Every structure is written in C-alpha cells, then in structure tokens.
Amino acid sequence: MHAYITMKKNFILIVAALLIVIGCSTDYEILESQTNISLTADKSVQVIGNPVTFTVKDAKGDELTEEAEFYVDGNKIEGNTFTSDVVGNFEVTAVYNAVTSSPLMINYHDGTGINFRKRMLIEDYTGTWCGWCPRVAHAIELVHNQTEDAIAVAIHGPGKNPNDTGYDPYTYDTSAFETAMNLAPGYPKGYLNRNIQWAFPEPNNINQAIALTQGENPKLGVAMTSSIANGNISMDVNVMFGKDFSNNLKLVVYVVENGLIYEQHNYTSYYDGVDLLEDYEHNHVLRDPLTGMTGEAITADQTKIGQTYTRTFNVAVPANVANTANIEFIAFVIDETGRVINVRKSSPGETQEIELL
C-alpha cells in the first residue's frame, strides 16, 4: 500500500511538471529585446488635408509598425497615419515594448511652397587593408535596410603602392581634401552630408543617418539624364530651386562603381568575424569626382526660385573603371559651409525627373 501511494505521488508530480512545461511553452513567448527603433514618415512635408504614414523598424530592418504605438505632440493616435487640417509643425514619436523612438518633425502647409524629396549622403573613408573598416560598411547596410533615401560612396585609400601595408587597388587620393576639410585622421571614418562625423560605433548609431532623411525638406532638387557610348559619358545634371539662394552653392558629381571583387581584412565580429574576407564585393566605390572633391560653383543668378540650373558633362569614362555596366553617378549640392543640401543617385541611361513634393 505504501509503495502504491509513493508511485501515485510521483505520477502526480510528473504530470504537474509536464503541465507547467506545456503551460509555459503555450502561454509565453520570449521576445527579442529592442533597444533601438527607427521611426520614419513617407512625407516630412505634406499639404493640409492629406495623410502622412509612419513606419517603425528595428536595427535589422524588420518592421514593427503594427505592434508600435504612435504619438503626435504627445497625444496617441489610432493606427500609423496622421492628417492635419491646419498649417503647422508636429512632433511624432513611436513606442514599441517601452522603447521610444527619436522624435521627428512633420510640417503641414497650404500648398503654396515648393519642396523636394529629401535624401542624405554617407561618405565612407575605407580601405581593403583596414580590418576595422567593415564596421562602417555594415552600418551602411543597416541604414539601407531602413530607407531608400540614404546614398553611400566608399572612398578608398590611402596607398597606391602594392608594396605598402596600406595598399588598396581602389585608392582615390583625397588626402588634401581631408586636410582642407579638417576631417578626423585614420580609417575608418564615416561622414554624413559631408561634414557631420558619424558617431562611433556606427552600427549602433544608424538613427543619426536616418534622421537626416527626415524633417524639413530641402528647397532644391536634383535630377540626372545620362548615357555611355564608345567610352564616353554624356550627362546633364539638373538642379531646381524652390527658393532664392544667396549663399555660395557648389555642385559635386561622383562616378562610382559597384561589383568590384577583392579581399577585405576584417577585425570586427561582423561578416561572421572572418579575416580575410576573400572575394568580398566592394560597392559604390569612388572612381572619379567629375567636379573635383570640392565641387564647382553655381552662379548666384541661377539659384532663384523656380529656376533650373543645368551642368552638362561630356567626358571619357574614368580609366580606372573596370566595368561600365556597374557605373553609377552621384550628384549633390553643398552650401557655403560644405554641408549637403540634397543628393541624388542615377544609373547610365536613366532619365530622371525632379522629385517635387
């Protein structure tokens, strides 16, 4: 009888344990901790009476919009769209699992202004020899997972001599420019909109880049029309102005190349922590700045509201380009401080329209 009671107790304990395990696996889900979320809007400037739609993503680029809550000027709204019938600026935040996004501003106007789609530039000073440089490359990938409005260029350096430890076959010497701009020494370094240093560690600070695609829209837009034939580039770069600019504007145009295969040293934990990264694909590599690194001046009489400035290029494809099929063009306008006002990327054969809002 005693043995029977003991067996019965053991059976009850086993069943209870199983119920606890089953209950835990059924009722609870372990959620991945989020410490950083990104909030973006499909429009930073909108005409009154029309909606703005918000999106929330995590650092990996996975969308969290349906689970997030949205607040406009501190007041919770239903869903992820907002419409205003009055002119003004509104501060928007999102909350997901008790994590609050950085705020962004949206502006409602009455339709009389001229605004353009806002894009931002990332300049990545890098090298194939530089083991810490994949950190910035990874951060750029994270930014591109979040937005199509970030345009990157990889500026390789500093060595052209194969016998040097700093040799990079894609080197474009920008040392004089870096000195003139008072850029930080060493590699890697990332700069946003030309003269804002990307905070270290860049993969943890992607919101710094994404924030530059949000907020007040620029008052100028860029569009390109181009073709390549018989080893020559023919291109028109058009810049339209939505207000009178009295300061000294400059146009900068890059030729970049994608799909370049070469080894990359890697001392980081990214890319599985492998060193060397053999057959690594290097993209948006600077091949030649058609205007020089500092750009060409746009005369003040061509920067008035409603005007379109056109710069025509008829030049040979840079000799260092490996495959013309992988060329892209990047054009941007900088102000008198050297900061990018707006930027655009284009492929050969593309005819772009100005991105008016």
Rank of each mutant, 00 (worst) to 15 (best):
N80S: 14
G166P: 01
E350H: 09
L290W: 03
D58W: 10
M240H: 07
Y262V: 03
T303H: 05
S25K: 10
Q264N: 08
I5T: 13
A325P: 03
T291Y: 03
V136W: 03
D73W: 08
N145I: 06
K76Y: 05
T308L: 07
I151M: 12
L19R: 02
F54C: 09
G221C: 12
A180C: 00
F54K: 00
K9N: 13
L19S: 02
Y271L: 07
N193V: 02
G79V: 10
I12P: 00
V252P: 03
T165C: 01
S346C: 06
E66I: 15
I206C: 05
G273Q: 04
L277A: 00
E78P: 00
N238C: 03
F54Y: 06
Y280T: 03
T310N: 10
K304W: 08
E353H: 11
E178S: 12
E278P: 02
E32M: 05
D42Y: 10
G113M: 12
V253C: 01
T294K: 07
M235A: 11
L18A: 09
A59G: 09
F116Q: 00
I228V: 13
E78V: 02
D27V: 13
Y172D: 01
A176W: 01
C24S: 14
T312W: 00
V340F: 01
V153H: 06
T291F: 00
K8N: 07
P103S: 12
R117M: 12
N145E: 12
Y270T: 00
Q302F: 06
A325V: 08
E178G: 01
D272T: 13
H2I: 10
I140H: 06
V222K: 08
A322K: 14
P318C: 10
N115D: 10
K219G: 11
A176T: 10
R287K: 15
Y254F: 15
T310C: 04
Q34T: 14
Y108W: 06
K76W: 08
N107V: 11
I77K: 05
V136N: 07
P103I: 09
V285H: 07
N163R: 15
A300W: 07
Y28I: 13
V239K: 07
N217S: 11
A41L: 10
N238F: 01
L183R: 13
V285M: 13
V56T: 05
R117V: 08
F313V: 09
A199K: 14
L104H: 01
R117E: 15
D236I: 05
D164L: 02
K76I: 04
A3E: 14
A319R: 03
I30W: 10
A16G: 13
Y191V: 00
A184W: 06
N205I: 10
Y187Q: 00
Y267A: 13
D244C: 06
Y280F: 15
G127T: 06
T324L: 06
T6R: 13
A316E: 13
S269K: 12
K8L: 14
A325M: 12
